[in-house]
Every structure is written in C-alpha cells, then in structure tokens.
Amino acid sequence: MILDVDIRHQQGAFVLQARFQSDGKLTALFGPSGSGKTTIVNAIGGLVRPDHGRIVVQGEMLVDTRKGIFVPKHKRRIGYVFQEGRLFPHLNVRQNLLFGRWFTPGREREASFDGVVDLLGIGRLLDRRPSTLSGGEKQRVSIGRALLADPQLLLMDEPLASLDDARKAEIYPYVERLRDEGGVPIVLVSHSVAEIARLATSIVTLSEGRVTALGSASEILRHTNLFAQSGPVEAGALIEAKVLRHEDAFDLTVLQANAGALMVPRLDRPIGATLRVRLRARDIILSLKRPEGLSALNVLAGKISSIDDISGPSVDVMLDCGGDSLVARVTCKSVHELGLVPGLSVHAIIKSIAFDPEALGAAKP
C-alpha cells in the first residue's frame, strides 16, 4: 500500500476526520475550499501534527499517535510542490534544482539530475534565474527540485491553480509523464474536475472534513452527485482511446475506443498514441434510434446498464457501450417519455464540446 491515512484533527471549529488508502500512481484529493484537502497533505508532509490517528507511506509509519510516533518533516522523504514555485531568486535553475540534493544523504541518492531535467524538459532553463521564467516553467523547476530529494511520495497542493489556461496546457504533459515514468507516487490537491479527470488514477472526494468517496478515477468521475459544487453535471466518464487516423482535409482526428470511433479536432499526436478522453454527462444526449440528419459526428451504440434513483428533475443513466461505461444526465421527463429502463438499447449522441483541450489526456497511467 502506497498511502494509508486514518486521522482526526481539529482546527478551531473545523474537524477533519479522514480515512483512506491508495495504491494509485496519482491520487487526487478533491473537494470544495475548506473540506480538508490541504490539512491532509500537510499532515502527510509533517507540517501539521494530527490530534489522533496514523499515517503510513510506502510501509513506513510516519504518524501513530497511540504509540507516540511522529517523524519530523525533515526526516520524512516527502517532496512538496506548492501553488507558487517558491524558488530561491538569487540562485539559477541549476542551483535551485541541486538544493533538493542537500536533503538526501549521498548513499541514498538515486534520482538522476540529467534524467529529471529531461523528464521535465527544463534543460534550456538551467542557467536562467527564476525571475525570467514563466509560471509553468517555475512549477516544473519546483517539481524537479522535489524529485531530486529522492522522495517516497510527492505532494502537490494545487500546483496549477495560479496558472492561466495556456500555462496549464504547457505543464499538463509533464505531470502526466511524471505520473507514468517518474517512479514516485503523487498526491495532488485540486478543485478542478477537468484536472483530476486528466491526471488522476485514484480520487478521494472530501466534504466538510469527511471522505465522501474513494476509488479509481474512472469509477468516481461517473457519479455526478459527488461534483455538484463544480457546476451542473461537470463529471462524466473516462475512457481510453487510441489515435486511429487523421483526416487532414477536415482538420479532424479519429480516435478508436471500445465504444466506437470518436472524431475530435485535429490532435498533434501520432497514430497509435493512447489517450484518456472525458465524456461529460451533460454532453450526452440519448436516442432510441440512430439519428439521421444531425451535425453531431459522434454517435455510440450501447445499452442502459442502470438508472440512478430518480430524485429531482434529473437522473443519471449509466450506459455500456462496447465495454466502455458512459453516463448521461437526462431529465426525469425524458426517462418517462422514452421509456428508458435497464437493458434497453440506445444511442449516445456526444456533443463536440465534450472534447475540450483539458478533456484529452496523455498515455494510459
């Protein structure tokens, strides 16, 4: 088990009581402000001493209040990346990176300087000062500094929150590569559904200091009720697809998933590349027959696997499309008028808006 957390901690009137385990390459802590996400990562990192409970990372007991165990933060092999880069302004990038080495005895150093530089694409930045870097470049250097301390776990507390969309788009591929190739498990704090859909392998959702759900990203993201605070039906399904071909004449890329072929705006990805695609529940329309005369390019055949209990004006309809699980949020009236029931064959019409830039991730984790 990579991470085992079972803690209770009170700060003023707020009480955190969180219990979860994770073996994911990238575990996302998701929830509204004040739900306890940062308190949890600070407890893991040793910045907060929980009142009660235990924390185990990679089999090492860091906290056990019953046994009086509390490993000081400087003795934990935990890397921490904050919202701001927090680089030393008087040092260049190379010197900032090497600062991470000071926290690890020479005999325990395993991370390769050149390997980390290559992984994060920061080779051309080594002689520059932090003041000359973009926000995305600063965060990549901060991640590199943390990795060069040879951590057992990397904590990232909303590292992209202060970046604009362009800078986020710049850094996403590096976080994906770190997740898949870096060899260090990650705990990511985020309030962005698009971000965790693209990056997370496991998700822990929190509300008012309590864990409300935990599981694989594909499983948790299907439950739209867990993400109500993020806007109407922001969640949905995660599926894996490969680049099948490019249709240059129409500036489109065709992806192949178990559910069928999906057309998206032209992607700069090679044929055969594996992607994660997020299909938002709000972007799926159901039809009893295959539609004709529509501008929508993406129509997937499937069967209804289940329908959530009807309460309120809308309901989640779970679909099995060739082995891929999708979810559509439709009105209760539509369920009644169309006669939607488990086992019924339907067609899922996917709006093109579902394929926004943040919805397309990199290789399968």
Rank of each mutant, 00 (worst) to 15 (best):
T27V: 03
L91M: 11
S162E: 11
Q17D: 15
T274Q: 09
F227V: 01
D356N: 13
Q10R: 15
S190W: 04
P89L: 02
V93K: 12
R145W: 14
P365Q: 14
S134P: 12
P357Q: 00
F103N: 07
G135V: 09
E358K: 06
V116F: 15
K303D: 11
A328T: 10
R129C: 05
R329C: 13
G215M: 04
S305I: 08
L288V: 04
L214E: 01
G45F: 12
L206Y: 00
I203C: 00
V233L: 07
A161F: 15
H223S: 10
I310Y: 07
I203P: 00
R140E: 10
G323L: 03
R129V: 07
A257S: 15
D309A: 14
T132V: 14
M156Y: 07
P72G: 09
S218E: 11
Q10H: 05
R86Q: 08
G59N: 07
L226A: 02
S218R: 12
A166R: 15
A228R: 15
S218N: 10
D127Q: 11
R222D: 06
R266L: 00
K364Q: 11
A354R: 12
S192H: 14
S287K: 00
V184A: 04
L163E: 03
Q58Y: 09
K242V: 08
S207A: 13
D309S: 13
I349K: 04
I307L: 14
K37R: 04
I44T: 01
G115S: 13
S216K: 00
G231D: 10
M318C: 10
E170V: 03
I7R: 05
V189Q: 03
R129W: 11
V254A: 01
S142Y: 15
I284R: 08
H9E: 05
V93I: 11
S325E: 07
H191C: 08
A328E: 13
R140N: 09
A217Y: 10
D114K: 14
A18C: 12
L119W: 14
A169H: 11
G136Q: 10
V335K: 06
S35N: 06
V81P: 09
L153P: 14
I143L: 10
R198Y: 13
L199C: 02
L275W: 09
L255M: 02
Q21S: 02
R222G: 08
E292A: 07
M1F: 15
R177K: 15
T132I: 12
I143N: 10
S230E: 11
V299D: 01
S306P: 05
R167M: 15
R101Q: 09
R19N: 09
V327S: 04
L62D: 07
